[in-house]
Each structure stands twice: as C-alpha cells, then as structure tokens.
Design a protein around this nucleic acid. Structure first.
Lengths: 182, 182
DNA sequence: CAACATACGGAGTGACTGCTCCGATTGTCA
DNA sequence: TGACAATCGGAGCAGTCACTCCGTATGTTG
C-alpha cells in the first residue's frame, strides 16, 4: 500500500514549516509552532516525526541533500578551481543563520558526521571529487582533505554570522579562501 | 557596607559551577543543577543572578576577562608576529567545547559584541594592539581589522570542534593562520 | 456510492523549568 | 556575647513543552 495523498503532502508541509520556524526562532521553538505554521495539528507532526529529535534530523538531512546536489553539480564544471571557491562562498553565504541545527543535534547526542547515513556519504563523495579536481587544477593546496574542508565550511559559516557588515564578511571569508590556496 | 563574607564566596562558587555545568551539559542545563554543583540552594543562585540570562552573561564575561588578560599579556612580547599566532592557537584550542555560550546569548537577544560593556571594550583594545604590532612586524596581513580577527577566532573554534583528530585540527587551523599572513 | 482503513485535530497528561517567598541560619559589630 | 540585619535553603507556583489518545474526517478501492 502506498501512503495516502494527504499524508505525503502534510509530511512535506511539516518539513518546510519546521525549517522556517527553526531558522527564525531557533531549534528551541515548540512543536506546536511548527504545526501551526504548517497548518496541521500537533498530532500530525508527531505521527510523521515521532520525536522532536527526529524532526530536527529530517530537516538537517534535507539541507544536506541540497548541499550534496550543489557540490555534485559544481564538480562537473570545467574550471574546477573556480567551482570550488564558488561552492565555498555560496554555501557560507546561505548557511548564515542556519547553523544552529547541527549544534542542537550534537547537544542531543546525535553523531552529525555519521558516515553510515547514505545522505552524508553522498555529500562527502561529491565534495570529495569537487575538492580533488580543484586540487589537480591548482586551485587548492594539496595538504587538506574533505574533512578539513567540511570543518572549514562550518567555521567560515560561524565566522561570518557575527559580521553584519557585508564587506567585512567578504574580507573574513577571503582570509580562509586565501589560506586554502596552494 | 561591604557584602558578607559567605555571600562573596557563594557568588564565585556559583559562577565556577555554572561554567562547568554549561560546558558539560550545554546552556540548557537547569539552574537547579548549577546550584547542586555549587553546593548551594537555588534561592542563592537567583539572589546573585536574578535571571538565568544574567548568569549566562556573567559566565561569558568571566571568560572574556581571561581572553582579554591573555591578549594584553601577549601584546607586550617583543616578537609580535609570533605572539599573535600563539594567541590565536591557544585560544582556539581552549575554546573547543565552550563556544555554545555565545550561541545561547545571541538566541536570547543579547548583543554579544556590545561595545558599551567595559570588559568587551578592554578585550577589543588588547586584541587591537596585539594585532597592530603583529601587522607592523609583518606577521599578519594588513587588510584585516579586529572585527575580522574576532570573527575568525570564533570560526576557527567552531571548525576545530568537529575535528576530533589532533593532526587534522592542526591542518585546519593552519589554513586559517596561513590565510592571515601577508 | 458504500464501507473501510488510514490519517487528522487538538484537548489532555506528566515532567520539567525558571523563579518566588519566607522561616531558619549565620556573619558582623557594638 | 548578644542582637540585628544580611544571607541562605528549598518547598512551592505558574508556565511551557514533548508527547499521547481517541473521536472525527477523509482518501481509496471495489
């Protein structure tokens, strides 16, 4: 039996609402608020995501999926060095307010880097090939691996959160990008 | 009237206990737990810090004080370039698990960078002269200011939190330090 | 269209949290 | 040492949150 139509619709509505609410009010926002935003009852939220932690994980993985897709897409481009820098910049600029999620998950004891998860493995993979090609093209120093890049992505996102001024944000990001050059 | 002896003793006990508890269990830890760790009643905690937010701020400022002292001390050293790098490294390695605090404060609407606070002004100052001298000594590029350095410190601390491996942590930190060179 | 399983809504529950209040305690000073 | 004010301890209060439960509604299938 495939699930009912309204069930799948509600599931994605809840996911989208949760993303919005967690960005706006932080991950401490109540499940009831998510339900209200999604236009459903709390019961529905808990049927699809039996635990708040599972809801957080689902939102997190959804974002990871997008990051993975972006990395995969950019890995195909000819100018690998440029592609890598663009990926880095784009991600950091989007990540801005969204970083609290991994914090909350880590505090709840979830292994955010868990390589067993297929989505995370895929992200690592795409990012890995993007990095490889950028290194071969001479755009990135050779003594860093995927893990260092991931750490730096997180760090850069955090760093730029505190810089409201756009030009200052650019300077901060440039320091890291320069550090990544050969 | 100066305050009673047990009052000042308890105040610092609470502060120390709060620091420990918040590092171990995150800033969501209950005030009762802080009280228990300090060996006092909750009433005592709330008398000294009428609000949980004020307690968080007090812990945060206490840490800032230490950072400021360290910056001031290193700013006196002759080899300014080396001193700056040492400051950066030392801070990032200590900060490790402690970064959640500023998160929590920001979420609570506290302006963490508020220049009006004397402690923060002092930190900015000490860090500023340390940076100035490092730049004049040719140890740090000239197009970054104190704010960029602060942002990078926060970013670097976050970045290295996810790297359990020590050598990987060193490589990650090196990327940023290299990026800071002229 | 009927009949059934699936999914929904939201009041209700228990656990927990920040904070208050006041009787008991303790430091201080004449 | 005695007496008073400053301080303490922790039971209790009001509010919130994650999560459950079940009567109602709705999609689906023959």
């Amino acid at each position: 039996m495939s699930p009912r139509a309204d069930a799948v619709r509600n599931r994605s509505r809840v996911l989208a609402a949760a993303d919005e609410v967690f960005v706006e009010k932080g991950t401490a926002a109540s499940t009831e608020e998510v339900a209200k935003r999604a236009g459903v009852g709390v019961g529905t939220v808990f049927r699809h995501f039996p635990t708040k932690e599972e809801l957080l994980e689902a939102v997190y993985e959804e974002r990871l999926r997008q990051v993975g897709a972006e990395a995969a897409e950019l890995a195909e481009r000819a100018d690998a060095g440029k592609a890598f820098h663009e990926f880095f910049t784009r991600l950091v600029e989007n990540a801005g307010t969204k970083q609290t999620l991994s914090e909350a998950l880590a505090a709840a004891g979830v292994d955010v880097d868990d390589a067993a998860s297929p989505v995370r493995a895929q992200v690592r993979d795409s990012l890995g090939t993007l990095l490889d090609r950028a290194q071969q093209a001479g755009g990135v120093r050779r003594d860093v691996g995927v893990d260092e890049v991931i750490a730096l992505l997180i760090g850069a996102s955090q760093a730029t959160r505190w810089t409201l001024d756009i030009s200052m944000r650019a300077r901060t990001l440039n320091v890291i990008l320069d550090g990544l050059r050969p």
